[in-house]
Simulated assay, not measured.
Amino acid sequence: MDTTVVKTLFFSDDGSIPNHPSLPVLIYPGVLRDKAGQTESIFNRNNWGNSWQNGVFDYHHYHSNAHEVLGVMKGSATLMLGGENGKQIEVREGDVLVLPAGTGHKRIHASSTFKVAGAYPGGMDYTTKTGKSSERPQVLKEIQDVPLPDNDPIFGKDGPLMDHWNIR
Rank of each mutant, 00 (worst) to 15 (best):
64 S>H: 05
93 E>N: 03
167 I>R: 15
97 L>G: 01
124 M>H: 13
56 V>S: 05
143 I>S: 00
80 M>I: 11
44 N>T: 12
166 N>S: 15
160 P>Q: 09
106 K>F: 05
53 Q>G: 05
58 D>S: 14
21 P>S: 08
52 W>K: 07
71 G>N: 07
51 S>M: 06
164 H>K: 14
104 G>T: 11
31 V>I: 12
83 G>C: 05
153 P>N: 05
11 F>C: 04
155 F>P: 08
129 K>T: 05
114 F>I: 04
44 N>E: 15
152 D>F: 09
65 N>Q: 07
31 V>E: 11
95 D>F: 03
35 K>D: 05
159 G>N: 08
158 D>Q: 11
73 M>Q: 15
8 T>H: 01
167 I>W: 14
147 P>W: 02
125 D>S: 14
78 T>A: 04
46 N>R: 01
139 V>L: 14
105 H>M: 08
95 D>E: 08
148 L>H: 12
68 E>V: 07
74 K>H: 13
125 D>G: 13
73 M>I: 15
90 E>P: 02
28 Y>D: 09
45 R>T: 11
157 K>M: 13
14 D>N: 15
86 G>P: 00
37 G>H: 07
21 P>Q: 03
46 N>V: 03
142 E>Q: 10
114 F>G: 02
100 P>S: 12
154 I>N: 02
5 V>A: 14
66 A>E: 04
18 P>A: 10
17 I>W: 06
11 F>H: 05
82 G>L: 07
4 T>P: 01
43 F>W: 07
20 H>Y: 02
56 V>F: 04
125 D>C: 08
